[in-house]
Every structure is written in structure tokens, then in C-alpha cells.
Amino acid sequence: MLKYSLKRLLQSLITVFIVITLVFLLMRLLPEEGYFGDGYDKLTPEQRENILRKFGLLDPWYVQLKNFYSSLLKGDLGKSIIYRPDVPVIDIIKLKIPYSMTFGLAAIAVSLLFGLSMGIHTARNKGRFWDKIWSGYVVFINAVPAAVYLLFIQLYITGLKYKGRSIFPMLFNRHNPRSWILPLISMSLGGIAGYALWMRRYMVDQLNQDYIRLARAKGMSEKQIMVKHVMRNAFVPMAQYLPASILLTISGSIYIESLYSIPGMGGLLVDVIQRQDNVMVQALVLIYSSLGIWGLFLGDLLMAIFDPRIRLEKKEGAR
């Protein structure tokens, strides 16, 4: 186990290294004009040169790459150059991560709770009225692009009024808990549909399996069967992806955070790429890709813990 873990860690380090280096080089292919914003015409050539020098962009690319890695080894992610000039990257994201993670984790909890119970409920009432309603919901959420339904939710639900005041405010406000509800629901809709769909399929599959029949024959109650057998087994494949999705809650949700004006991480990466803030892009890609890769690794470990049949050393499954 230890040897395997070390090997996986090393492997992921190499992956992250390659990713970062590629991203670093790709960013340098973007046009120089992007570093100046709208003021380009008003600057003299000397000023442009000074700005590029300040950003460290006048050195040849390999020197820049070397500088980047040597400060990274010292644990320094650098200072933003355009997004918020001279502010350390850490200071920028440290204010934003709590928002994204809080909402993300709450949304995962809500999705798990509602999604799984919905899945179980529909599986046991297969073909009946509620099953059809829920299936319709799942189809809708999965098929229609999020941008469309999220927009309509904000548009119509925030318009609802009680005694002349809107029940749900249009914008997030950290002092007003009522404003947290809609973003949280919006964020959970997709998760609920996903978990419900998966749980329903899994249940329909499992309930016909021999071991369940045996359990029934033994005289176990449905509740016991559910908790001791079905749920436990259902958790194993889920365990693989849960750590990654928990870790990646720090990246936030681009649509919802921008719709409700939540000052989180969502859209930050797109934003800094478009503004060509190389330092921020590199730092974010580094964080996201390491978390993503380590999340999957943790998932594999967790799966091995829950399912004694799985041996990591020989595993060659999906990654």
C-alpha cells in the first residue's frame, strides 16, 4: 500500500509538472497587446517595455520558466500581475475559497441527501406516477444547458413577492441568510439529478441480485437490507469520485457565482486567462490539477478501504 501510494504520488507530480509547463508555454503564445489593456495607444514604447519588464516578460522563455520553478520550490506562488497587480496570489484566493467551498460542500450534501433518497424512492416505485415526475426532472436537468434553466430560476423566483418584498433577494449578501438559499438550490439541481439517476439504476440492478434475494429469504427487513447491503455496496463506486468532487469545490461554479454575485473562485480561471495574468493562471492550474489528480488517488484509496475485493497494486481500472 505504502509503496503504491508513493508511486502514485510521484506519478501525479510528474503529471502536474508537465501540465504546468505546457500551460506556461501556451500563455506565452498569446499576443503582447493583451498585457496592456485599453491604454495601449496612450503608452510610449519605453513605457511598454517597462511594463513588460516589470511582468518579467522580457526574459527569454526558459529564463522565465526557471524563475517560475525556483520560486515555486520556495513555496511562493508569486504575485498577480494584471488581475490585482502586486497582490500575492495566495492573498487573492484565500478570500475567495471559503465562499466557493462552503457553497460547494453544502451543495454536495444537499445533492447526496436529496439525490440518493430520490433515487431510492423512484427505484422502489418504478413506473409509478412519482417515478415519472422525477424522471422528467432528471431528463430536463441533464439535457437542458445549465445556463438556460439557472437564468430562468433567478429571473422568476426572485420576482416572487410576499407583502411587497421579494422573498429571495437577487444578489448574494453574506449578512442575509435568505440570499444563500437560491444559489444553494441552483447549485444542487445538477447533483441531485446525477445522484438520483445513478442511485435508481444501481438499485434496480441490485434489487434483483442473488444476495438480496438471499437476504430476503433469511428474513431481513427491507430497511436492514437497504442499510447493510445496498447502501454499503452503493457507496463503493461513489467513493471513487467523492474526494475529487469535494476537493474541487474550491474551483466554484462559474454560472451561479456570477449570476448571484458570489465573490468566489468560479470564473476566476477564465477571467485571468482572458486578462493574460500569467502568474494567476499558473497558480490556479497548479492548484486545480494537483487537487484533481490527488482527489482521484484518494478515491482509489477510499474504494480499496471500503471494498476488500479491490487490491490497488493490480488495479487497472478507470482513472
Partner: peptide, 26 residues
Amino acid sequence: LDAFMTEAYNVINNIPTTILLMLLAY
């Protein structure tokens, strides 16, 4: 090829699409 391809997949999958799209559009 499995190990190599898995590695390549991890790398490509972790490069933000936005960068590629911006470069392509440019």
C-alpha cells in the same frame, strides 16, 4: 501503451480549455 496514454490523458485533461480556445480564436 496504457501507462503512457493515461498520463497523456491526465495532462491534456488538466489544461484549461479556455487557453486553447483563446489561442485558437486568436
